[in-house]
Nucleic acid binder design. Sequence first.
DNA 1: TCGGTTGTGAATTACCTGTGAACAGCGGCT
DNA 2: AGCCGCTGTTCACAGGTAATTCACAACCGA
Lengths: 264, 264
Amino acid sequence: MRLAVIDTDSGFVRVLAKRLDAAGWECRVLSSGVPTDELVAMKLNALLVDISVLGPEGWSFLDRVCGVLPDLGVVVCTTGSTVAQRVRGLRLGADDWINKPTHPEEVMARIEAVVRRRRRGRANTDVGPLVAGELEIRPDQFQAFVSGQSAGLTRREFELLQVLAEAEGKVIEREEIYQRVWGYAMAHGDRSVDVFVRKLRRKLEKLSAGWEYIHTHFGVGYRFEPEETLGGATPAEPAPEPARAAEEPVDAVEDAESAASPPA
Amino acid sequence: MRLAVIDTDSGFVRVLAKRLDAAGWECRVLSSGVPTDELVAMKLNALLVDISVLGPEGWSFLDRVCGVLPDLGVVVCTTGSTVAQRVRGLRLGADDWINKPTHPEEVMARIEAVVRRRRRGRANTDVGPLVAGELEIRPDQFQAFVSGQSAGLTRREFELLQVLAEAEGKVIEREEIYQRVWGYAMAHGDRSVDVFVRKLRRKLEKLSAGWEYIHTHFGVGYRFEPEETLGGATPAEPAPEPARAAEEPVDAVEDAESAASPPA
DNA sequence: TCGGTTGTGAATTACCTGTGAACAGCGGCT
DNA sequence: AGCCGCTGTTCACAGGTAATTCACAACCGA
């Protein structure tokens, strides 16, 4: 559990930090607002913030954070708030609002509840291998294989593949893909998804020529669905040079990526 | 939004129910605990419960409900609770805990926050295909089909169709169509909607000749409603299983040569 | 009949995606 | 520490697709 705390109430923070530490949570304390991209980099599960520390910027900060990091649990903890303020904060995207003074244990319980809520939805992380076409996607290896050969996917490439494959047959918009793989909202004009789709396609084709897995939907996004392209796509056909041994982890595409194994 | 309230505080419930009603929420009030399978049958989004109403059974009730309905938002709202009780409730699976007295608006905001958080985790699995006439509108594909054949709609065309079809039978003004599809206000004299309606009509007619889906209301806007035209329609494609009209009485004229399927 | 509204097709513009490559950050290795 | 290779990000360009605009014809209602 990774948590950031934005607060200047040193007594409260000290007591809380002690408990968090005892519970095994990773906790970072900040004394002022930080740029959203810095929060992104922290890969947090939750954020605890005393909105009064941020002054009048507080509301826009809250709004910004909730917009950029929709999966982040946001709990406000401040003194002497009014009903109207609490309602405003919650409607802006905060997940809970606690009034100080409060007990650290309750703060933790509330943060747990928020994070639990968020996780329960994607709890279906069944780590069963998934086969599609010639592909075998193994979450336990963070890797995809074709007849035992590794595709040499990087982490991002694999996660992209996984997100697409888990929704086999369904079209997913770029924004959603980005959100699920990168963990935060996609900036306007970001082409990362396209670039990774290209890399993925290239690596998959190298291993599984004659199959198409990722289909483009113009103006929308991508769809994963194994399709045999060539009529009689017998593995005998596309063989200008790919006669390879069957146990080498395959040094991926020729462009640059010879990863783990020193072949010669 | 479907909500159940378990509480005996008639004053609180009455005021709250009024607000919920005004906000368009469906609300069911109960004065005691109910079997979990009854709660399941209600297909709720959230449950608001005064745990003191249930007496000593409260905790086990909470535990049971959270176990059986992990997707249900559970908010406890009661008087004079201790930190220990709140922590216990939250750890048992409650999503929020409010102390009475409280403002109905805050209750609503907190329930919204809970449900919002829950929804975000879950994928958009709530997208059911919509059938109208011979048409099948599939949001997961951003596409419409007739007997399995894609209509080849672009994104804008599809969204226009979706907006119209979701309000089946109702006339929608151009300004509103534009607002919902394009996302911002229509400029005066903009003919985009008309142009897209034409494109849409053409593509739909190509696949589903003999049906009219989009009707013009002069000086107002458009209305979606599948209607079988009586003109001799020669379906240029295999029409094995025409979908039945949703609710159109239309005891259709038998067409000897076009595909006829008397649905009895 | 007339003025305004809608249907239609084509031309123009804007936007989207594929693609290759350059750049920067990070970690491992010597 | 310094070097090197991998990885992720960003950029620019090309080719193609879709959206918008425009002019005119057909249409509706008063």
